[in-house]
Nucleic acid binder design. Structure first.
Length: 428
DNA sequence: TCTGGGGTCCTAGGACCC
DNA sequence: TCTGGGGTCCTAGGACCC
């Protein structure tokens, strides 16, 4: 009912209370890179990319300068992209680095060709999480109706916030932006519009450190000229299909009849696209949501073979299961659908899963069940990635506990404890 | 030398039940 | 014995997003 056919078709700017609905989308600018620049101010203005694992050299760097502040580390002590070998990709690049054509999702070795002098920093999630919590707390203080959209993005409902209507939301957007900058030193871009769909597009108009305001009358002038790909939800595949049908811009999409879209994209997607092209979106700002699944996966440094690298794979497999179990326990959830994911050397992926009749967050149970899944998958090709997932989650501490859910004491007793150990040892 | 890791949502077929 | 819907759950794959 959130989107699609059944949603009542209000004009896009109408709020049930009669007030103009004003929704903001806030996006932190080059978030990881900007956080790193706060820690290493000497890198300001230089091309910096974040990516790859925590490399040994980086540890050396930190140890060499232990006792100094990070800001004291001289520029020539930092690692450069030049000569990088390995499989990592860039997660974020500073704006200075983007000048060289390097950016998110680009392989680090390719990036090294484009911008060898760029400074390479490893990803430091704990640090980003800290700043993420900080900027969200600042926003929630000003405008409590906030939806978390990941580490560096939120939607905010400005509609009922004092001042939220002034200049279409620009005044409040400036206030939020300033509060975040004053308290963290980080910049962000904000779009304010009648709904989430348009706010999301608007926040991209003026990056970095920009604000842009969209009113209903702006649809034709500011939205319709944009490429369809700018709609959040139209990815590479849908865009390719649209282009094949001669549709490049949102305006061209809007010019099509609904039945035509339904014919080519199905009832649901067709109707959603039609609404999107007309700037219609009734989705509410959602404050809380429950996780659906928890997973861990890893790409190996080199492709591994199920037989030849059996020991190494077994170790990694067990570690992934322990990590997922720990994640579940830390977050306070138990799940009953255990799954694995493999990626072969040709980049093709397969998944297998199995649903238990009990909920669990126990590493051994997960490892056992994931092991059974693994047996259902062809293992003659080299692997580049292995993942473990637990889904169908419910909050822990209900009627079931981890202890009750061990396979040896539960309905999953098709295998005894010794069977289990044997099976696990046979997996690789 | 290609292509990370953590998620959500959707579809479609088959099993199984009423 | 044949035919048939509807509903739910499970599984596999894929698109998409941050």
């Amino acid at each position: 009912m959130v989107r699609g056919f059944l949603a009542p078709q209000y004009p896009m700017n109408e709020h049930p209370g009669g007030v103009r609905r004003r929704i903001a989308h806030l996006d932190m600018d080059a978030f990881y890179a900007s956080v790193e620049l706060l820690r290493y101010p000497q890198l300001k203005g230089l091309p910096v990319v974040i990516g790859g694992g925590r490399r040994a050299e980086d540890e050396t760097l930190r140890q060499t300068y232990a006792g100094h502040t990070l800001a004291d580390i001289p520029l020539d002590a930092f690692h450069r992209l030049k000569g990088y070998t390995g499989r990592g990709v860039i997660t974020t690049a500073t704006y200075a680095a983007r000048q060289f054509g390097v950016g998110s999702a680009l392989g680090l070795m390719k990036a090294a060709k484009l911008c060898p002098q760029a400074i390479l920093l490893p990803v430091d999630f704990n640090q980003y999480r800290k700043y993420s919590h900080a900027f969200k707390a600042i926003i929630a203080d000003i405008a409590p109706l906030m939806e978390d959209r990941g580490v560096d993005e939120v939607y905010i409902d400005f509609t009922e916030v004092p001042g939220g209507q002034r200049e279409g939301g620009r005044v409040l957007a400036r206030l939020v932006q300033k509060a975040i900058f004053d308290q963290t030193g980080l910049t962000c871009s904000v779009g304010v519009a009648p709904n989430k769909l348009l706010a999301k597009m608007a926040s991209e108009f003026n990056k970095p450190n920009g604000i842009s305001i969209i009113f209903e009358g702006d649809l034709q002038g500011k939205i319709w000229p944009l490429a369809c790909r700018k709609i959040n939800g139209i990815g590479p595949k849908a865009d390719e299909k649209l282009q094949g049908l001669g549709i490049e811009t949102i305006g061209q999409l809007a010019a099509r009849e609904l039945p035509w879209l339904v014919q080519h994209f199905g009832k649901k997607t067709g109707a959603w696209m039609w609404d999107a092209a007309h700037g219609r979106d009734q989705r509410p700002v959602v404050l809380e949501s429950e996780p659906v699944c928890v997973s861990r996966e890893t790409t190996f440094e080199r492709d591994l073979h199920a037989v030849r690298d059996k020991v190494e794979l077994g170790t990694i497999f067990t570690r992934l299961c322990s990590q997922v179990a720990a994640d579940l326990q830390r977050k306070g959830y138990v799940g009953k659908t255990i799954g694995i994911k493999l990626r072969y050397d040709d980049f093709k992926s397969v998944t297998r899963d199995q649903t238990l009749d009990i909920y669990t967050a126990d590493a051994q149970t997960i490892r056992h069940t994931a092991g059974l899944c693994l047996k259902r998958v062809p293992l003659d090709q080299r692997l580049r990635l292995l993942g473990v997932r637990v889904g169908t989650l419910v909050k822990a501490g209900g009627t079931e506990t981890c202890e009750e859910n061990r396979p040896s004491t539960s309905k999953l007793s098709a295998s005894s404890a010794t069977d289990l150990a044997t099976k696990i040892s046979q997996l690789f």
